[in-house]
Nucleic acid binder design. Structure first.
Length: 581
RNA sequence: CGGGGUGUAGCGCAGCUGGUAGCGCACCUGUUUUGGGAACAGGGGGUCGGAGGUUCGAGCCCUCUCACCCCGACCA
């Protein structure tokens, strides 16, 4: 590619609204431009990198036996009504009507379409298992798109769906995809972890997220450095060691600074102390001696959950462990209906079902709200002062918690960018959409399904987030926009240009993705652009080097330079081959 | 959706107390340059996000509105 005839749109400064390294660099390198919030143009450089990621994904999908198709991203409402998601999916689903007033939406994911497709084409167990995939735009009307293509509303996604005759077979399909994902992200040069995750809106029983470890990640994950345990903080189980469970030490140590024996509830004034921090400060009582009472609105009615003051409730875990369809913080109206006051709720004389985090089991004589404005209670004890309907694991994991893999190890929190997600769906969609096949006994069965997504643009952004320096992007050579750039520093110097073109032609002939920077600009601009774009190999030809009959070979990664005789094309090709192939 | 903020040239920004809209970079022409974002000379480019209002006069004040950004809630 001759850059004088290319669309290279590099910028010295990034627009103000770019925050993360990858967002800034992708704009500065002329990879993307914003069209509207969360909607982007991919310029040639960006598209090249995107395609390289796509091709890695495609190769690994194909070699895992998946078959490529393309489905429409405008999808009719009736498919979504069939699965029941037309009403469940929130505003994230962009809906609209066609000229005949029929409902449609932009596909945020394609379970419905693919299930319908496979149901129509596959009739017999003999044609199963099958995994099909596509690489195609998706649209989700995100509440808050941000960080460029990291969280965009329109984005390119690889989505694959497996169809099996039974659960065992489905597990094999899942495993194949899981392994393909590991290979894909390894080939993209990413530092990542596969973590256990919640399956959320898509449903299903089991799932893993592939997380690229990065400071700017939007997800918190808990990892164990000793074993390879990792999980999204939304789901990380809190386990207790046997020691913890046996010990009675809590009885002595968790009192709220008052004498134990009488255990008499004492009402104290706590004017305007709404948060646990305020209560803690005002009463001079440690925050972990306070118990928060959170009022939740669920499909089983209004209920309360007790959490130790220094812990956070995980609604995801609560929903799962209580087996609820939905659970949300109660509204102000709901709270006042049960005769309590926001900020001063407590379990004593509270006439609704009360659940508690496991951590409460061994706590005694703690502080709670009084259900009366500006008052809290000291020396509250469950069993004695109120009844707990059940204990469950529903707090968010924190640093130092016991590793669920090995009780001797502890967990540490870190941030991650979710680049891929694999789900075991079971028969959720095939049941609701009545999609199935005839088994070998001639019986009608529903498909066992799995679905597997990769955010292609997000992989690009994550790779840049992990691979950059003060000069710019530093992608691995299989993702870089070009492998080699040939820079003649003086385009008007005939000798320089002849040598440059000869080298360029030879790299082209040998199958390299090579650029010739024949723009009539000064050398400085060309060096800066090449380094900003992160082209792994830079070959410079200028009047200076030609005085010595040499050209210069520079690596972007180390910025190390090597000199070659200007006729030593073979030497250049060999070194390039060694470095990037 | 709640809280905060920003809209002035392609990008980054200045514009005081209301009085003829500016700077740097980028762009165009010419000349000289060409190994680290060149120099000189000349030039083009703006409904000051939009609508309405106050005023002799509004980029600046008032009202409404739109877009975008940040924090939160939310979300494969």
């Amino acid at each position: 590619m001759k850059l004088s005839q290319y669309l290279l749109a590099t910028l010295k400064e990034a627009p103000n609204d770019a925050e993360t390294a990858s967002h800034k660099l992708m704009i500065r390198a002329g990879m993307i431009r914003k069209v509207a919030a969360g909607i982007y143009n991919f310029l040639p450089i960006g598209l090249k990198v995107l395609r390289k990621v796509e091709n890695i994904i495609r190769e690994e999908m194909n070699s895992a036996g998946a078959i490529e198709v393309m489905m429409p991203y405008v999808t009719p409402a009736d498919l979504w009504e069939k699965s029941g998601r037309w009403n469940i999916y929130g505003k994230e689903l962009l809906r609209f009507k066609d000229r005949a007033d029929r409902d449609f939406c932009l596909g945020p994911t394609h379970e419905e379409v693919v299930t319908d497709l496979v149901d129509k084409e596959i009739k017999s167990y003999k044609n199963l298992p099958i995994t099909i995939y596509q690489i195609q735009p998706k649209f989700r009307d995100e509440i808050r798109p941000r960080f460029g293509v990291m969280r965009a509303r329109e984005f390119i996604m690889k989505d694959a769906y497996s169809f099996d005759i039974d659960e065992n077979s489905a597990d094999l399909s899942y495993k194949k995809m899981f392994e393909a994902y590991n290979r894909i992200f390894e080939r993209c040069g990413l530092e990542f972890r596969a973590v256990e995750a919640d399956s959320g809106n898509i449903g299903g029983s089991f799932s893993h997220e592939f997380m690229v470890l990065a400071e700017t990640g939007e997800d918190l994950i808990m990892v164990c450095d000793e074993c390879d345990y990792a999980s999204n903080i939304e789901t990380t189980p809190v386990v207790f060691t046997q020691d913890d469970l046996n010990q009675k030490k809590h009885e002595k140590n968790s009192g709220a600074g008052r004498e134990m024996p009488e255990n008499k509830i004492e009402k104290v004034s706590t004017p305007s102390c709404i948060t646990v921090e305020e209560v803690s400060d005002f009463l001079k009582i440690k925050i972990n001696k306070i118990v928060k009472t959170m009022i939740l609105s669920t499909n089983q009615g209004i209920e309360a959950v007790l959490i130790r003051g220094d812990h956070e409730l995980s609604l995801t875990k609560y929903k799962k462990n209580r087996d609820l369809e939905f659970a949300d913080l109660a509204t102000n109206e709901e709270i006042s209906k049960i005769n309590t006051v926001k900020g001063f709720s407590g379990p004593v004389n509270l006439d609704i079902n009360i659940f508690a985090d496991n951590e409460l089991r061994n706590m005694t004589s703690y502080v709670t709200g009084s259900n009366e404005k500006d008052f809290h209670l000291l020396n509250v004890n469950h069993e004695k002062d109120f009844k707990i309907k059940g204990f469950l694991d529903c707090r968010q994991s924190v640093d130092g918690d016991v590793c669920p893999g090995y009780p001797d190890f502890t967990l540490r929190s870190t941030r991650g960018i979710e680049v891929g997600h694999v789900f075991k769906l079971g028969t959720k969609y095939s049941d609701s959409m009545k999609a199935g096949f005839t088994d070998k006994n001639g019986k009608d069965m529903n498909f066992y399904m799995g679905c597997y997504g990769i955010g292609v643009g997000r992989v690009v952004a994550a790779a840049i987030e992990q691979n950059n320096d003060e000069l710019g992007i530093r992608l691995p050579s299989n993702l870089a926009p070009f492998e080699v750039i040939v820079i003649p520093t003086d385009t008007k110097n005939e000798k320089v240009m002849n040598v440059a073109i000869k080298i360029y032609d030879n790299f082209l002939k040998n199958g390299y993705d090579v650029a010739l920077d024949d723009r009539p600009d000064s050398a400085g601009i060309k060096f800066k652009d090449s380094e900003l774009l992160g082209i792994p190999i830079q070959i410079t030809i200028g009047p200076k080097s030609l005085e010595k009959d040499t050209v210069e070979f520079k690596e972007r990664d180390s910025m190390k330079k090597n000199e070659f005789k200007m006729d030593d094309i073979e030497g250049l090709l060999n070194l390039a081959n060694e470095k990037i192939r």
